[in-house]
Write a protein that binds this DNA or RNA. Structure first.
Lengths: 250, 250
DNA sequence: CGCCGCGTTGACTTCACTCAAGGCGCGTGG
DNA sequence: CCACGCGCCTTGAGTGAAGTCAACGCGGCG
């Protein structure tokens, strides 16, 4: 299977062989991490962690130990802003599962963007999309009920994974404990448990251990009050190419 | 007084006369808006709204009318991502007060960035900071109590306004109704009222109409469980220049 | 075998929401 | 000039969603 980074960027516009090779080159030297490993910190100044396989997240702790996760990464995602090196990092990135991570030198990334305008374009479109996801989290945390929030999260993850070809039929991996889900969506573990059970009873999802099944994303999305245009992934089928590139219009 | 955009960017590094002039040029043709006016929509494709005076916000509505504000803009702020034109906008931007807004052509902005690397650098640093603010909102909404949340918000706004020279002594403008505050922090109007009163009783803030006074930001920050490094504005005094540029380190 | 992490359940508490009403300041129009 | 309406702030009472605390089952692993 091709590089997840390439698959992700191809959603934003076609790439030719040359461009795909350039992206592959950026991933050289990817390393394996164990679950629950910190990534991108320490020695790696001037590089951007790129997740190629597995799951990761970023979070902040309050002074009394409360944790809030404010980013979830799936294969193909950059785990830091393209210009993140301009400002000291204020949070931690950690793997959720065994993972493959490339430490892409920021200079190489920017070089590739200069040489390949379509890569630059895709990368920026991807950044803008990441932003939209974060804003949608704000909406969830601020105004959606626990039930809607969880439904929205499962929907988002499912669609993002489908976009990089990691959904098999109606199922995908999701190595999150209920405690993680709580820290993602601002809920207690106990309440997550109850809400997940309700979602199961309503047959919107099946969730056993690290395995998520979504019988019908559209139905789940409706329960989540999900914006049909969200991620531009909604209506489309399993993988890009046939879907219209949702890019370029003003 | 100089252009708020220039003042904001100077926080991220010094700019010479030439660079300041370039920024000024981008603001040519700024127009006045009434309060509660939609900005940046419609005809303005290919431009980025830049707020030069007044306040604005962006929000989303859920299908049943619940509103969540997911961005608050103060003078000097760009109201859209630098590459926002790569993706259709999924939300609305609206003024909170009478405001002056320049519709900066994206092309002109990128041109200025190419000609003036220090402008590019400052603009990127500013983007990264905006990101950090949004993530901090996620933390607030997910894990802070209503009391901490409001304290954090007032602190953030106060520091951001101070950074562009819009704090006079211990006071600044803040033209938000309690309903707006609720939609910002995911609370009901009634509860906002109660929390604000508590903050007043604790003498952490004074808030009458559109006027906010913060006797001691450090104390307010402590009540908010605010990260001391947040915004890099904390310890510094009223305005840049004398403060070390918090930029460039990895 | 026994610990430990994770999911599950029940009972109770509490933070925040809803509903409802009243006050105040201000602009508009009679 | 005053009456009225309206937006906003305030207050009280009751409700409800989600949190806390505590216990137990289950499965994996050392």
């Amino acid at each position: 299977m091709t590089n997840a980074f390439v698959r992700k960027l191809e959603r934003f516009g076609p790439l030719d062989r040359d461009e795909r090779d350039a992206l592959d080159a950026l991933c050289a030297g990817a390393v394996h991490h164990r679950a629950d490993d910190e990534i991108g910190q320490g020695g790696q100044a001037g590089t951007v962690p790129l997740l190629l396989a597995g799951f990761a997240y970023r979070f902040k702790l309050l002074s009394d130990g409360r944790r809030q996760i404010h980013g979830l990464f799936v294969p193909g995602d950059l785990c830091r802003h393209l210009y993140g090196h301009l400002s000291p990092s204020d949070h931690v990135v950690r793997t959720l599962s065994p993972a493959v991570v490339a430490a892409v030198p920021a200079a190489a990334l920017h070089g590739a963007m200069e040489r390949h305008p379509r890569i630059a374009r895709a990368l920026w479109a991807s950044t803008v999309t990441d932003d939209a996801v974060l804003r949608e989290w704000v909406v969830s945390l601020g105004r959606r009920s626990a039930y809607e929030r969880m439904a929205h999260l499962f929907c988002e993850v499912f669609l993002r994974l489908r976009a990089v070809g990691l959904v098999d039929g109606q199922s995908c991996d999701l190595p999150l404990t209920q405690m993680d889900l709580g820290d993602l969506m601002g809920l207690s573990t106990v309440h997550v448990n109850r809400v997940v059970q309700q979602l199961r009873r309503d047959e919107l999802i099946a969730l056993k251990g690290p395995h998520l099944t979504v019988p019908d994303v559209a139905v789940l999305g409706r329960a989540a009050d999900l914006d049909p245009a969200y991620l531009g992934l909604e209506v489309g089928p399993a993988h890009p190419r046939n879907a219209p590139a949702r890019v370029g219009a003003a």
